[in-house]
Lab assay of single mutants.
Amino acid sequence: MDVFMKGLSKAKEGVVAAAEKTKQGVAEAAGKTKEGVLYVGSKTKEGVVHGVATVAEKTKEQVTNVGGAVVTGVTAVAQKTVEGAGSIAAATGFVKKDQLGKNEEGAPQEGILEDMPVDPDNEAYEMPSEEGYQDYEPEA
């Protein structure tokens, strides 16, 4: 019985440690998101679009440190934060509304985080759909 109880105690310690790591990862992701939003706020009209992409990228980098179902929630929060940063930029006159959601080359930025393969159960990952990809044929 002692062996059984000791095993359960060790398992509990492992769960607590994993929860603490997840909590730490979420806190880091939130900190990076805040950094990115402050970065966007300090940019001029020309830099705002690039700044919004930076927020998304920093958040995406930190999301990889967070495991399990938390990833889905962090990704949703990050996307809403990026959308909010863009709205703030438009409201303050840093950028025109028609410039939001495009990178410096004018290509749409939507789907940055949505296409990231995420499995809350950590069982399997699927690649994003290939609808947006084109076949590449090298020139002879």
Rank of each mutant, 00 (worst) to 15 (best):
E123S: 13
V66C: 14
G31K: 14
G51M: 03
T33W: 15
N103C: 13
V48W: 09
G73N: 09
V118C: 10
K102T: 13
N103S: 06
V3I: 04
D2H: 15
G14I: 15
T54H: 06
A30S: 02
L100M: 09
G25E: 07
V77M: 15
E104A: 12
G51R: 04
G31D: 00
E61M: 04
I112C: 12
K58M: 14
T81W: 12
T72H: 01
M127K: 11
L113T: 05
V118R: 04
A30I: 14
G7A: 04
E139G: 11
T81E: 05
E28L: 09
P117T: 10
E130R: 02
Q79C: 12
A90K: 09
E137Q: 08
A91H: 12
E46A: 10
A140C: 11
V66D: 01
A107K: 08
A85P: 04
Q79S: 09
N103I: 03
V48Q: 01
G36V: 10
D135F: 07
E131Y: 14
S129H: 12
N122A: 07
I88E: 04
A19T: 03
E46H: 09
S129D: 04
T64S: 08
A17K: 13
A17Y: 10
T33E: 00
G47L: 15
V16D: 01
G14F: 06
V118A: 04
Q109S: 14
A69P: 04
G67I: 12
E28C: 03
A140H: 05
E13F: 09
E105D: 14
E61P: 04
D115Q: 12
D121V: 10
A19R: 03
D121R: 08
S129P: 05
G14D: 14
E61L: 02
K12F: 07
Y39C: 05
G73I: 10
Q79E: 12
D119I: 02
G106F: 03
S9A: 03
D121C: 09
T81L: 04
E110D: 06
E123L: 09
V63K: 00
E35F: 12
G73Y: 01
Y136I: 03
E35P: 03
T72G: 07
L38W: 12
V66F: 11
V49Q: 13
G106S: 12
K60L: 11
P117F: 07
V66L: 07
G73R: 08
P108Y: 03
M1C: 00
S87H: 10
F94P: 07
K6V: 03
K58V: 15
N65Q: 05
V66R: 01
Y136S: 11
V82F: 08
G51F: 01
V40N: 02
A124W: 08
K102F: 00
M127W: 13
G106K: 12
G67C: 06
G73E: 15
A140E: 11
T75H: 03
A29P: 00
M1S: 00
P128L: 08
A124M: 04
K45N: 03
M5P: 00
G67P: 04
Q99Y: 09
E105H: 09
P120T: 03
G84W: 04
G84K: 07
E61A: 05
V15E: 00
E123I: 12
P128E: 13
E61H: 07
E105M: 01
V82C: 13
A124R: 08
E114G: 11
P108S: 10
I112L: 13
V77H: 04
L100Q: 06
K12W: 14
D121L: 05
E139P: 12
T72A: 08
N122D: 12
V26L: 07
K43G: 01
K43E: 01
A27Q: 12
E28R: 11
T72K: 06
D119T: 15
V66H: 05
V26A: 03
V37F: 08
E28P: 01
K96S: 14
A27I: 10
N65C: 11
I88Y: 13
Q99N: 06
P120D: 12
P117K: 04
V16F: 13
Q109E: 14
V16T: 07
M127C: 03
K34L: 09
V118L: 07
K21V: 11
M5D: 00
V52P: 01
E105W: 12
K43L: 13
A19I: 12
P120M: 14
D119F: 11
G14Q: 12
D98I: 12
A76W: 02
K23P: 01
P108H: 07
V52M: 02
V49M: 14
P128Q: 07
D2M: 00
D135Q: 12
Y125E: 13
G41E: 01
Y136F: 11
G41N: 01
E114C: 14
A19L: 14
